[in-house]
Amino acid sequence: MAMTGVMRPGHVCIRVLDMEESLVHYKDRLGLQEVDRDDSGRVYLKAWDERDWFSVVLREADAPGMDFMGFKVDGTAALDTFEQRLKDAGATTERIPAGELNHCGERVRFDSPTGHLFELYADKDYMGTMMGLVNPDPWHEECCTGMAVQRFDHCLLYGSDIDGTVKLFEDALDFRLTEQVMDGELRVAAFITCSNKAHDLALVRHAEDGKFHHASFLLGSWEEVLRAADIIGRFKISIDIGPTRHGITRGRTIYFFDPSGNRNEVFHGDYSFYPDYEPITWTAEELGGAIFYHDQVLNERFLTVVT
């Protein structure tokens, strides 16, 4: 499919309680590379297969969680258009000047009915991968360290009015619903995409707004998911659940927590979603298998623990 407009999740800014121990986690364990720091103390990281300068920003704070999630759009004209469409759809927008995040161009930040802050941007400095663009090797051992995550892939966020946030992303940004969980007439979870992935953003209905469930990173195979689990065991990283299989999106996955209690996922595999596809629906009575396909039972912690 042609991929225009909003192209992909481009960054996530995560609050951490202690920067140094968080860097051990995100750099040495996940395998992200530190690419910059700024005057306010934020640390910028990127995965080995990402080309733009950074995808994860860590900020030390009193409470963990997510500051904002950013999506890259295809050009400054698109940025202007989406800004207007967001306003028309009732969102409050704000222009953040280029350079407020190092290496990132002007951003359009907007709020959402679930209380999360998102932003769009068209430009980010190009760093490239270690393998380059001419006759590249598939990977280099120097950059594929730790779990060797390939890219920041998506977030799952919790809040009450998920229908409102889904509608905003559909109406203003051309996202599509790929999967949903219905409890009778009530939609309790939604998976939406701007591309042809099974999801670029997921939302779960929850009493409290603005909550962060996880940031997810892509791996190249199921074997790499097991290898990530070995690293989790070796370094006694706080695990949530897995390795296992999701019914929803079909991802093969493992969930664990960073040292501040923010949940991370590393996963492999989904399916391609095309614009003519109808969404997949899961019913609440089959929620166990929808979420964890092997056990077919719900893990309380997975569903309730957020930052």
Partner: peptide
């Protein structure tokens, strides 16, 4: 562990 929609889903299933 304060469950949001989950309690309802487990207790009653679909309406």
């Amino acid at each position: 562990m304060d469950k949001a929609f989950l309690k309802h889903a487990q207790a009653g299933g679909a309406r």
